[in-house]
């Protein structure tokens, strides 16, 4: 099992797509930093328009924490999309190149093989989120410095610099669990669909539907609180003035349950599947 995991890690870092993903994340960060630099102040002015009538402002809100928060928002779409492409590619490329058949001809258990794929996909996802967080903090604080964070979430919330860093760090950690779910789903889709393009389309569709359904109010407690789509924004809870930790723990427990169920379904389907020429 350990050897299989190492083999999968080796394959992952041997393929060019992995590095394209890292480069894509870095480029997205640069674009966000650049656009925030050029338009950030006007957005802040718009947000603080009402307060400007009654207050003068002392201090700079266009700082590293705001930039980190903006980059954090790539967890909504950009990052899961990149992960869907890369993670599903680890299996679809094996179908395409028929290396899967070669592996299966070896004395390797099918369920162990695919479980290792899942484990490596999870490790890779955590690594990517860590890379995103690290580069975000380095770039944001280097070019914009620290300062108070302003977030519009129900209300206009201001957080002191140290508090903002704490919240953003935890948001990355909790967001990583959401990203793991998308990775696990994309690998499961790859098991079912086998072909890369179909898997990417299905994965992107799943991501879009997830984001759309997040905003739909079903008027049912179970659907509004327990359905996966409604858990996708758990990392945003860190930006409520009073952090609802109890709700966060609950959502994370459900997310992990969804991840395990999806993995189980994937392993089961792959185990039942014939690998043909």
């Amino acid at each position: 099992m350990k050897d299989l995991i190492f083999t999968e890690i080796f394959k992952l870092f041997k393929q060019g797509k992995t590095y394209y993903a890292l480069a894509a994340i870095f480029i997205i960060e640069i674009i966000i930093l650049f656009s925030a630099y050029s338009q950030g102040q006007s957005v802040l002015d718009l947000l603080l328009d009402n307060l400007q009538q009654s207050f003068h402002f002392e201090g700079n809100l266009l700082n590293g924490n705001l930039l980190s928060y903006l980059i954090l928002n790539t967890l909504w779409f950009h990052l899961p999309l990149i992960l869907i492409v890369i993670v599903s590619g680890t299996l679809t490329s094996e179908y395409k190149d028929r290396t899967l058949l070669s592996v299966m001809l070896q004395p390797v258990s099918k369920w162990k093989f695919i479980l290792c794929k899942y484990i490596v996909a999870i490790l890779f996802t955590l690594l990517i989120v860590f890379f995103l967080a690290l580069t975000t903090f380095i770039l944001s604080y280097t070019f914009f410095g620290s300062g108070d964070l302003i977030v519009y979430l129900d209300n206009l919330n201001f957080y002191e610099s140290s508090d903002a860093f704490y919240r953003i760090t935890w948001a990355f950690i909790i967001g990583a669990i959401s990203m793991v779910f998308f990775s696990v789903v994309s690998l499961t889709l790859a098991i079912i669909l086998e072909e890369a393009t179909k898997t990417w389309i299905a994965g992107a569709f799943f991501l879009i539907v997830s984001n759309l359904l997040l905003k739909v109010n079903f008027g049912n407690y179970f659907l509004d609180n327990w359905l996966y789509f409604k858990l996708n924004d758990t990392w945003q809870y860190l930006f409520y003035f009073n952090i609802p930790w109890h709700q966060i723990y609950m959502n994370l427990a459900l997310l992990i349950l969804y991840i395990l169920i999806t993995m189980f379904i994937g392993v089961f389907i792959f185990n039942k599947k014939d690998i043909s020429l």
């Binding site: 718009l46 947000l47 009402n50 009538q53 009654s54 928002n73 519009y152 129900d154 924004d233």
Partner: peptide, 19 residues
């Protein structure tokens, strides 16, 4: 004590404030 208008442009970063 002062008068202040409610924020009229809810600049959203998406998410829970959809309502």
């Amino acid at each position: 004590v002062f008068e202040i208008e409610r924020i009229r442009i809810p600049l959203k970063y998406m998410g829970k404030d959809a309502h």
